[in-house]
């Protein structure tokens, strides 16, 4: 057994802060939509704005981190082991087969994770941030001639994005339990490192680079 550091401190702070903000944005956002009552409408609206600004600030920090540390490379999609990963989730996992991809510091994400998180970063988050901004500035846009129907499109896109995030969250939380023990992935995301078996570590040298 040895320890492999997967998630440096900033990575963990960013991840958990982002998770918390997205949850709070979902709570306040769905209250504004009228799905339930929790904070009170005006407070929900104001909190939603607050969390949105906080999330944007966090994203800016995260972009800076990804660029300066080169961590962005971890999200470059690869087809290597993609089929094996799909096969693992569809059959191997039920037969106690070994995980086809070994995590290491410079390649902490398996090919499926790369795709999912890249989609999250370049699709869902930008859609949410931009439609959110358009939503907030809509009175100004409306004053400068945007038609009333444009808010309908903005709002619908924003809500679809929110549902997308919710679905993502469900899958994401479940998949954390697919490590070698149900809670080992979660623990890694909290403490930053993971216990790795020696033989797994040895076979890792065969993994092709992306």
């Amino acid at each position: 057994m040895s320890r492999i550091v997967l998630y440096p401190l900033f990575n963990r702070i960013w991840h958990w802060t982002q998770a918390l903000l997205i949850l709070l944005l979902a709570l306040t956002g769905f209250e504004v939509r009228g799905t339930f009552r929790l904070f009170g409408y005006l407070r929900a609206v104001n909190l939603h704005h607050t969390f949105a600004v906080a999330l944007v600030v966090l994203i800016l920090f995260a972009i800076f981190w990804h660029v300066t540390t080169g961590e962005w490379r971890q999200y470059i999609p690869t087809r290597a082991f993609l089929r094996e990963m799909v096969a693992f989730y569809l059959t191997g996992i039920f037969k106690n087969a070994p995980h086809p991809v070994r995590k290491e510091r410079t390649a902490k994400l398996n090919p499926l994770q790369r795709l999912a998180y890249l989609g999250f970063k370049v699709l869902i988050i930008p859609v949410q941030v931009s439609t959110g901004a358009l939503y907030f500035f809509y009175p100004n846009l409306s004053a400068s001639g945007w038609p009333p129907s444009s808010l309908w499109f903005i709002a619908v896109l924003h809500v679809l994005g929110a549902f997308g995030l919710l679905a993502f969250l469900v899958g994401h939380v479940y998949l954390t339990t697919t490590g070698h023990r149900p809670l080992s992935n979660l623990k890694a995301m909290l403490v930053g490192y993971e216990e790795v078996h020696e033989e797994a570590a040895a076979s890792a040298s065969e993994e092709p680079s992306a």
């Binding site: 005006l42 407070r43 104001n46 909190l47 704005h49 607050t50 949105a52 600004v53 906080a54």
Partner: peptide, 8 residues
Amino acid sequence: CSLLPLMA
């Protein structure tokens, strides 16, 4: 309104 949600 992002800084003062509770005073809003």
